[in-house]
């Protein structure tokens, strides 16, 4: 990275840091929340945004260093499509198993 434009360099670094922050927030939320339905929130949203930031940084970096890459766009689209589907299936499985929830029932309370 000797001849990289400093603006592109800073933008790639900023996108990488944003992605790392959101990945860490997603994992910490999964570690710290109290029941499964709360824990489902953190990775499905924050980690998807984090990996999207890292992938956009990688796309910009590879475009700046000479080769235009489409692989990263493919991975981004794949993760953005499949993360809500897997979260929905996990929520259905948790409802089927009748996992305990800390939230009260809205009609009974």
């Amino acid at each position: 990275m000797t001849e990289l434009n400093p603006w592109i360099d800073g933008l790639v670094a900023l996108l990488l840091l944003i992605g790392a922050f959101f990945l860490l927030v997603g994992a910490l939320g999964m570690l710290r929340f109290r029941d499964f339905f709360q824990r489902l929130h953190a990775p499905t949203k924050a980690s998807t945004l984090g990996v999207g930031g890292v992938l956009i940084a990688s796309m910009l970096y590879s475009a700046a260093t000479g080769r235009l890459a489409i692989h990263e766009l493919l991975i981004t689209l794949f993760i953005f499509i499949t993360a809500p589907v897997s979260a929905n299936l996990l929520a259905k499985a948790a409802l089927h198993l009748k996992l305990p929830s800390k939230a009260g029932h809205p009609e009974r309370d």
Binding site: V54, I75, S86, A93
Partner: peptide, 26 residues
Amino acid sequence: PEIADRILALDTLYVNVVALVIVLGM
């Protein structure tokens, strides 16, 4: 505590591994 928690953690681990492999490629 539940089996669904472990599956959710494995899914998040896969997403983190994708980001790790991409950072390694960069």
